[in-house]
Amino acid sequence: MNKQTRKKFLDTLLGGGLIAWLGAIIYPVSRYLVPPRTPDINPDSLDVGKVSDFQTNSAKIVRFGRKPAIVVRDKNDTFHALTAVCTHLDCTVQYKSDTEQIWCACHNGIYDLQGNNISGPPPRPLTQFKINFKNGKIFISRENMA
């Protein structure tokens, strides 16, 4: 084996070793930085309170699984339940009783009470939840998710 080939061999060995060594550091660190997925706590339905807890033309935000949901009792005493997360940039929406609309304060996005995006930047409607009444209580569920 001449000197040149031996040098090349050693260079490759050292270079390869260096790459392997870097990989052995970078791989576990990069995996460490990605948070583990925790199982979704997604109950199928949620008790959001008594009918009498809601005044006409008002709303309440509740935690449904991981995300907030908004339950609205409109002027005609009809209930609406929607996800409360704006489809634009993830802000939590609120009910505007004067205009009877769902409003996102972050970028002035507006939805109607069926969740349809009617004005501003939101690209998609809010997801509607099914509402059931039982013994004077209101339950929302994901069964009818759009």
């Binding site: 935000i61 509740v62 935690r63 907030p68 802000c91 939590t92 929406v93 996102c104 304060a105």
Partner: peptide, 10 residues
């Protein structure tokens, strides 16, 4: 408060 709506003027 993750359950309060985004405030106006954010």
């Amino acid at each position: 408060d993750p359950l309060s709506p985004a405030p106006a003027g954010i």
